[in-house]
Design a protein around this nucleic acid. Structure first.
Lengths: 260, 260
DNA sequence: GTGCGATGCG
DNA sequence: CGCATCGCAC
């Protein structure tokens, strides 16, 4: 079974790329981030035609997540609030979390806040949001043994996940507090699927549109699959597909495919 | 010799269409309107590669005219002011006129103001501008016998130049005052090249982007070549090429080609 | 650099 | 409806 994650930077603008990719790569599950569209305007038909069921959470202009699955999900939930009912519902205003059940696997599709710059209000929001994500997962793990948490984490955990030029601790996506916040979540019992198979540096999933970053491979590995132990043991591979990043008007992210 | 006129609605956005069209239709002269770009940013190279000399007058976002010619023009002038030195230079702030000499032919390339709606300030501006154009041509005719005045006139002179649905005298582009202003100019000694060869209605050069106008041929003939008598006698044909209007993301205008 | 939205223009 | 600008986000 293949579960892919792809920040598409607008599903409407990237529709042709995504559908072409899905045609060539009929993964069982595709987790999308930054769809940038309300549910009603999500372009469902091209996915349906390929046999995918869609589970969508979206807003205007920003954020937005969705899961496309060849098998119908037996359950899907949007946001933090239904699992964390005491949480102020403002934390679900930004559409960044969608969770779905596929057989015994709980798929948590995330678009972690970017955080803008270290020390900014958005940075504080990111850290707080990551803390809530920890609470969400802790609660989820009480009832689900097999969790695949994937998406755009906007955090590169290790120095080998960043091209050298911007490898510093005060940079957004690699600051100590962000890494610590993510590690704290992972300590609940998650392991990075990609690093089970590949220890190399230079394996990125995102390249800034500016300064021809992709051409120089000045990228970051910020799109991840984190798995609970049994799933991690079952994992057969995890690769990044850079083909779509070479197209005209690409997303700035490449899809990452987990096989279990 | 072929002299074409084409309102391209942004030369940067339409560059591929224009260059492809010029490759297939290597007219001697192409008069462009609504280039929507300052001179420095006009995409010259693709024209140069096809062997065209360029004469450009542009501004940011709006208006803008240019002449591309296989032979170098022996003279070119921008705006009204150099011929009407007493005129307030504010009348050349909008880049709507460029004039060039090719052998003994004076080519006046125009983008006449649209006028917005009958009675508006912009309508008054259009009428005043047309009056100034008359003065400009009168002066020009003192020294030039052969004038080809072409471009987007934003006026349909006769009812047969408009699809029936909007054929009324209070509509912008067909109101009596506009038609009268243009007729007054033509009375200086100009004749409509297109009507030398084609008396039919339904022969349009512009179709609104809205309401699938082109599909229904709900158009207007507002792009014209007006010729002084000897040129008019020499004219061998004048046709509208609707092929580019069928492309993806077309200009709302089609090119019109005069052969003399 | 790229996408989205709002606004102005036609 | 399409283009251009601007401000914002990333």
């Amino acid at each position: 079974m293949k579960i892919a994650t792809w920040n598409v930077n607008s599903i409407r603008t990237r529709l042709d790329h995504v559908i072409e990719w899905l045609t060539d790569n009929p993964v069982d599950v595709l987790c999308l981030q930054e769809t940038k569209v309300i549910e009603e305007w999500f372009p469902r038909l091209p996915f349906t035609k390929l046999g995918y069921y869609l589970y969508v959470s979206g807003q205007k202009s920003y954020n937005g997540v969705a899961i496309a699955s060849l098998q119908p999900l037996t359950d899907s939930i949007i946001g933090f609030n239904s699992i964390l009912p005491d949480l102020d519902s403002k934390w679900d205003e930004q559409k960044r979390v969608i969770t779905g059940m596929l057989a015994d696997i709980c798929i948590v599709n995330l678009y972690v806040p970017n955080g803008s710059s270290v020390g900014s209000n958005k940075y504080e929001y990111k850290l707080k949001w990551l803390h809530l994500l920890g609470s969400y997962l802790q609660k989820l793990m009480q009832t689900h043994s097999h969790i695949c948490m994937c998406g755009d984490f906007n955090i590169a955990l290790e120095d080998r996940d960043i091209h050298e030029k911007v490898n510093n601790k005060n940079h957004i996506m690699s600051s100590s507090a962000e890494r610590q916040a993510l590690k704290s979540i992972l300590s609940l019992g998650f392991a990075d699927a990609f690093r089970k198979f590949n220890q190399e540096s230079g394996q990125y999933s995102w390249w800034d549109y500016r300064a021809a970053s992709f051409q120089h491979n000045f990228g970051w590995r910020i799109d991840h699959h984190y798995l609970t132990p049994e799933l991690y043991n079952r994992a057969k591979g995890c690769i990044t597909d850079t083909i779509p990043r070479n197209k005209q008007k690409p997303s700035d992210h490449a899809p990452v495919i987990l096989e279990i």
